[in-house]
Amino acid sequence: MDDFIRRTTTDAVYEQLHSEIVSLDLLPGTKLSEVDVARRFGVSRQPVRNAFTKLGNEELLVIRPQRATEVRGFSMDRVTLARLVRLSVELEVTRRAIALWTPDADAMLQENIALQERAIDADDMAQFYALDYDFHHLICSLSDNPLAFEVVLSCKQKVDRLCMLSLTKDRDAKLVLNDHRDIAAGMASGDLDKALATIHKHLSRLDDTIQLIHETHQAYFE
């Protein structure tokens, strides 16, 4: 029972700090104290230490012995790697999904796209971006590699955190939706070249934004 309580307490601290870091409520360079965080959550230091370790493993905190833990700054090398890994995975799962394509697969993508359209019409961007995640998760599942989305999600979150610094961080939802339509059309028709080209275009839309953030927010970079 004690192990269960400790595990769930660690999870609660981790999830809250993770949310605050990726949303930039805690900016890069912010110092965190185990004592202060434990007092804030009303817990002992052990679950806080466990949460810090998990966040450090995810490259969100820098933990140095005998020195203050702090929110990790951005690294263009790590951002570039995350984008490369995501692109590689998404291109491969698209190839595999096309090889396994069925009418049911097309119906599932079209249902997701229809929900995206409704979210845009309702100006519900939170729902739209959740459906954006679902769209890419669905392609991984249709490729018979659902766990590939864990890699996609990890890479996407690294870039999303960076793009929170942009004044234009809300992407043009209609452009994203049109990309999704083109990807789905390429997959349904078996047009591998079209599907892969659209995936590449879709994931390259943030190039200029990332470069601008690097130039205008250098204090947040390592």
Rank of each mutant, 00 (worst) to 15 (best):
I5Y: 12
A38D: 03
A173H: 10
E58D: 12
M108S: 10
S44F: 07
R49E: 11
L167N: 12
C140I: 02
Y129S: 06
P47F: 08
A173R: 13
N57F: 05
M1R: 12
T168S: 15
K31V: 02
A197E: 13
T216V: 11
L196S: 03
W101G: 03
C155T: 11
A105P: 07
T10I: 04
D191E: 08
D123N: 13
I63E: 06
M76L: 09
S204T: 09
R78S: 11
H214Q: 12
E117C: 03
D25N: 11
R161K: 07
S143A: 15
R45I: 02
D182G: 01
D77C: 00
I113N: 08
T94H: 05
E150M: 10
N50R: 13
L177S: 07
M125W: 12
L142I: 02
M187Y: 04
Q218H: 12
W101Q: 06
G73L: 09
G29P: 10
S204V: 00
E58F: 03
F149Y: 15
I63H: 11
V89N: 05
T94P: 06
K194H: 14
R7M: 09
D2I: 06
S88C: 04
T102Q: 13
G186A: 11
E150I: 00
D208S: 13
D208H: 14
C140P: 05
D121A: 14
L32Y: 09
L131Q: 06
L147G: 00
F41V: 02
W101F: 12
G42I: 07
D208K: 15
M1Y: 03
V37W: 02
D106A: 14
L61D: 07
R83T: 03
N112M: 07
T69H: 10
A195N: 05
R39I: 01
Y220R: 04
D179E: 15
R96G: 07
P47E: 06
E150T: 04
L212Y: 11
V37N: 03
R64Y: 02
R40L: 09
V159P: 08
Y220Q: 11
S19R: 14
K169Q: 14
T80R: 14
S154V: 00
E117K: 15
N178W: 10
G73A: 07
E111P: 01
L24V: 00
F74E: 01
W101L: 07
T30E: 13
E70F: 14
L84N: 08
R83L: 07
E15R: 14
C163Q: 15
I63F: 09
A197N: 13
S19C: 03
M164K: 14
R205W: 09
I210L: 15
T94S: 06
F221L: 01
